[in-house]
Simulated scan of single mutants.
Amino acid sequence: IGGGMANTFLAAQGISVGKSLCEHDLADTAREIMQVAEQNKCEILLPVDVVVAKDFKAHAENRTCAVDDVAEDEMILDAGVKTVAKLVAAMGASKTLVWNGPLGAFELTPFDKATVAAAQAAGIRAKDGKLVAVAGGGDTVAALNHADAASDFTFVSTAGGAFLEWMEGKALPGVEALKA
C-alpha cells in the first residue's frame, strides 16, 4: 500500500505521520482491514522507511527515515528504498499485481523515485511474462507513464473508480449493457 492510503494504515497503528496526507477518520476501517488480513494470513505491505520533507514542493529539503521517526512538522512524500526493495521482492514471489495509486508525490522531483522504481520493476516482470500486472486510475496511469512503464503492463485502465468496482466484482452498467 502506498501514498495517502499507507499513511492512514500507519496512523491507525498509532504511528505519527506528521503533516502527511492521511484520512484519520478511516482509522477504524484500516484496523478492521488489518484484522481480517491477519485472520486470513494475508500480509499488508506497508512502508518501513519513508522520504519526508517539511514543504510540499519539488526539490524540497528531505530525508529518509524509519516510519516511526516522522516529525510533527514533516510530511511523508515518498516510500524509501527499503520499502521499494520489499515491494519488488513481493512482486518476484507473485503471479498477479493490481496497482492503484502511486507510492508518493510522483509529480514532484525527487519524490517520484519509489513509484518509478516499483513501476519499472513490475513492467519488466510483466514484459517477461512472469507477472500479470494490471493497473487503474488516473493518477496511476500518469505515474506509470511518468515511469515509462505503462506500455509494459499487462493491462492499464484509465477508469479509476469503475476499475476498482469491477475488480471487486460489482456490476457496471456499461458492461451489463454489452452483455444484453
Rank of each mutant, 00 (worst) to 15 (best):
S151G: 13
V50E: 10
A159T: 02
G101K: 01
D148Y: 11
I1Q: 03
E168V: 12
A85Y: 11
L77T: 13
L45G: 07
K95I: 14
E43W: 03
L178Y: 10
D112R: 00
A149I: 05
F106P: 06
L172G: 03
Q39R: 14
S151Y: 02
V141H: 04
A159C: 13
G3D: 13
M34N: 13
T140W: 00
K127Q: 10
I15F: 05
A147Q: 02
T158L: 05
A79V: 13
A121V: 01
L87I: 04
A30D: 05
I15P: 07
A119G: 03
S16W: 01
A89T: 11
V50F: 11
E107R: 03
A93G: 08
G2K: 07
Q120K: 08
A147V: 04
S16C: 14
G104Y: 01
L164P: 00
A27D: 11
D68Q: 11
A150L: 01
V81K: 15
L178G: 12
E23S: 09
T154R: 12
V132H: 08
D73C: 06
E32V: 05
L172D: 06
P110R: 01
V51M: 07
G101D: 07
K86H: 15
V48T: 07
T115P: 00
A121H: 03
M167Q: 13
N62Q: 11
A53L: 13
L45K: 15
A122Y: 02
V17E: 00
G3R: 10
L26E: 02
D69C: 15
E72M: 07
K57V: 03
T64K: 05
P102K: 15
L46N: 05
I1R: 00
G160A: 10
L97G: 13
V48G: 15
L172I: 07
V156K: 02
E43K: 11
V70N: 05
E38I: 02
A37R: 05
W166F: 00
T140C: 00
D78Q: 00
E72G: 12
A93D: 12
E61F: 11
A118P: 14
T29W: 03
K86N: 10
A133T: 06
G104K: 04
A171Q: 12
A143L: 11
D73R: 01
T8L: 05
K54M: 00
D69H: 09
M91R: 07
A142K: 04
D25Q: 11
L108W: 02
Q13D: 06
A58F: 05
